[in-house]
Amino acid sequence: MRVAVALSCGVDALSGRAAPVLSELHAIGLARQLSADLVGVHVGAAMPLLRDYAAYGLNRIDVLMDNAAEERGAGLVGAALAAWLRANTDIRILVTGHRACGGLDSGLVPFEVAHALDWAVVSDVAEVVGASDTEEKSSGALQVLQARPRGVRRPVFIEGACVLAAHDRTGNVPVRVHAIGRAAHIENVHLTTTSDEGQDNGVQGDIRPWRARPRLMSGTSDATKGSGNVLVAPSADEAARAIMNHLRQLGLGPSGAASRNVTQ
């Protein structure tokens, strides 16, 4: 089974220099859980940064030189990827990062690809649990875990071809081997996408330097004062009971909901 990984070639948020995007490294990690036969794919010009990505375990990277995509910017990245996947029928799974880091960063690409190909799409994937069938042709079911806030994991069952978007914070980064990056085969592929393919999601707007925008005072700010329930020098049992009662009110503790469905 062949698995493709979409690479965006982002920039570092602090320095602005080209750097791998963390969630795309997570994506490579996910892809390696799925298969050993990986191929990276990047839309745009070939960059030295691609070797950095390859060092995490990609033997081959296809660079899609799509003139139309370059002229008209994002929105067509999805279309280019879809066209490439149509041409490579042996690939049934595309793994992407959470969102790009250096472009429009809208997070739409995985959804666009899935829509164009009529594939399934799952976002925030933290881990692959199992691909029940390696021969993929016979509608092999795939089970992945989706990361939800506060450590909750939700199993997702997928049938058929799919796009998996990695989570941006949780995931595993594979070991980086410089020699693999050096040896990787980076190839330019020319695609002919029809120019009306792929919707341009309309809004362009002005681009200007980022500025921190105010946030509302969050609800926790009144907790900052503390509601001031102070027990001074209670007996140990009294203290323990107060703590346990407080935890129970929050649905925590040994009999709480949070620990109920946990397998220890």
């Binding site: 799409v121 939700r154 069952f157 997928i158 469905n261 946990v262 220890q264």
Partner: peptide
């Protein structure tokens, strides 16, 4: 086309 189906969410192992 029930290609994607969610299971029941599981709280992570706190430890």
């Amino acid at each position: 086309t029930g290609r994607v189906r969610f299971g029941d969410a599981v709280a992570g192992d706190p430890a």
